[in-house]
Design a protein around this nucleic acid. Structure first.
Lengths: 121, 121
DNA sequence: TTAGTGTATTAAGACATTTAATACACTTAT
DNA sequence: ATAAGTGTATTAAATGTCTTAATACACTAA
């Protein structure tokens, strides 16, 4: 389901949260579907339960999942996170594009770079 | 000349290096121009000399500046860093685009976002 | 009642960043 | 030659974050 990169300098809890977020965003996890329990996912990823718990807490904070004590974590309805995700991600893209332009890269070259990413596999 | 964000979680030495790099890329610092000494910039930024030294070392490693022991640090000629800057900045764009795609944003919407940045003023 | 769930706390270790205090070699101007 | 300013290097300490570990508690479901 998820593979972590232990050599990456980014915190494990952030990696877990982002990978699950991406799975949800792409439909790999449907709304209403139950996520693995904190303890089970921790075992699967060879990570401490606290680390998974922090990832889940962040995901709930952003509206991607709903937590029910004693039962588990469930994927939220798309309406709860789609707008905020699009806004966040397009904001990042805009910032990066500004930096790319400031560095002197031409418009066509920048567009080509983005197109290539989308046309890969 | 430069203002650091001490609340930002990013390392100070990286912030210093990036801000100087941007100044150079945008012509705020001309080739041949001398940078502030390690000690003076450290005082200006309220930071330890070691931190500035690390920033300068990184900048020299990437070809943005040339260091002469006993004299100072000087902005390198554009030919020394233009390629590496393009590579770095396009790499960032690629990564961001991947994240945008993973979030479920469509190709046309992403391209439109980049186009808008380039067509602004 | 039992097992499985989320949650919370405290302690310890590992690690990166930053500061601090020096020291040394080099260059420039006097 | 001397002095001041430069880059560079080293070692130690302080700090903060991340992670693990070991528990404990409240809740839910079978």
């Amino acid at each position: 389901m998820i593979v972590l990169d232990f050599r990456d300098k980014r915190p494990l809890n952030e990696q877990v949260a982002e990978k699950i977020m991406n799975l949800i965003a792409q439909g790999g996890l449907a709304p209403g579907e139950r996520l693995p329990s904190v303890r089970n996912l921790a075992i699967d990823l060879s990570v401490n339960p606290n680390t998974v718990q922090r990832a889940y807490a962040a995901l709930e904070e952003k509206g991607y999942i709903t937590t029910i004590t004693g039962r588990g974590n469930y994927v939220s309805d798309e309406s709860n996170w789609k707008d905020s995700l699009y806004g966040e991600v397009l904001g990042e893209l805009k910032e990066t594009a500004l930096r790319v332009r400031a560095a002197g890269v031409g418009k066509e070259e920048a567009l080509k770079c983005v197109r290539e990413v989308y046309e890969r596999d």
